[in-house]
Amino acid sequence: MSSERITKKLTFKTFRFNAETDFLPYFKTYEMEVGKDELVLDILNRIKWEFDGSFSYRRSCRHGICGSCSIKVNGKPVLSCKQNVWELVDIFETDTLLLEPQSRKRVVKDMIIDKKDFWDKHAELKPYLVAEIDEHPKEEIKVSPHEAEQLLEADYCIQCGNCYYACPAVEVNEKYFGPAQFAKAYRFNADVRDNAKQERLEKVREMGPGVWDCVKCFECAEACPKDVDPIEKITKLHNQIFEEGLAQDNVATRHAVGFKHSIVKHGLLDEGELVRYSEGTLGVMKHLPEAIAMFKKGKIVMPWNMPKSKNLDEIKTLVKSSSKVKF
């Protein structure tokens, strides 16, 4: 075998900005030969060491533990110390990669962003165990393996923020708690030793900041370097809100429940009825212009023409026997 080291010549278009001295961000381009084992963090180091000592970024553990080194490459959120560079070349089919901070609007210097909103929202959901602890216990608090499994690995989160800065709901709604925050709320809600489940659910059920504003895009699941799968935990929080009888009567909860009403009647979803039931008779008025446009184009099925699934009685039987949740 040849001992020759194979490298690829790559170009890194790099976001540069110093909030203290610059009016506008700019891009600097660095070219280098990159070996097949090099990670994004190696590239950040090389920019600093070989090109420009003023280049700034966060890193600490270099082992995927501290969560400080996240950036975006060609729009993909990456944990720098885990992400192989050649793999990115493969994904994007290009020799030019764009390095930028997780969020341009929160940048302080180069790759470093201000994560204040991320931490503040975290803190609001009590990201810790709330329990009366006996300081002189006779024996340890026992958690069974089955109970521990219920955390669904939500405790693997290293708070790198990849999910949060990839989340479109966070991007357009600054009140929205965010995926990592919900995953953490779930982590403690699922802990049998914890006593603050209701308090957290009363926060996450709110329209605006809460789980109902999730657009279900799965960006968070895709972005997470630890496979925390925040959207899965968000779904669990929705379920807990209903299970604990904490669901408020609003457009979001009626929307979820409305599916069941429709399915039991038609098998299929009655789209018009779902909007009417969710919004209420008055609320539905704001959809009128669109409803008229749709009607003109033959996109509205009249109640008397509503299609039904074949063997509808099977569906009715199953809804009756399988549905346990109440609203």
């Binding site: 279900k216 779904t235 929705h238 379920n239 209903f242 909860t253 929307h255 979820a256 429940v257 599916f259 069941k260 429709s262 399915i263 098998g267 299929l268 979803l269 699934s309 074949k310 063997n311 099977e314 569906i315 199953l318 809804v319 399988s322 549905s323 346990k324 949740v325 609203f327």
Partner: peptide
């Protein structure tokens, strides 16, 4: 598949996960 029902569109799943599994399996 005229027998098929609604998939729940991820919203029934928020309310009643088990029911959504049964319907989709059907």
């Amino acid at each position: 598949l005229d027998e098929a029902s609604c998939c729940g569109a991820s919203h029934l799943q928020d309310f009643d996960d088990f029911l959504s599994l049964v319907l989709n399996a059907r």
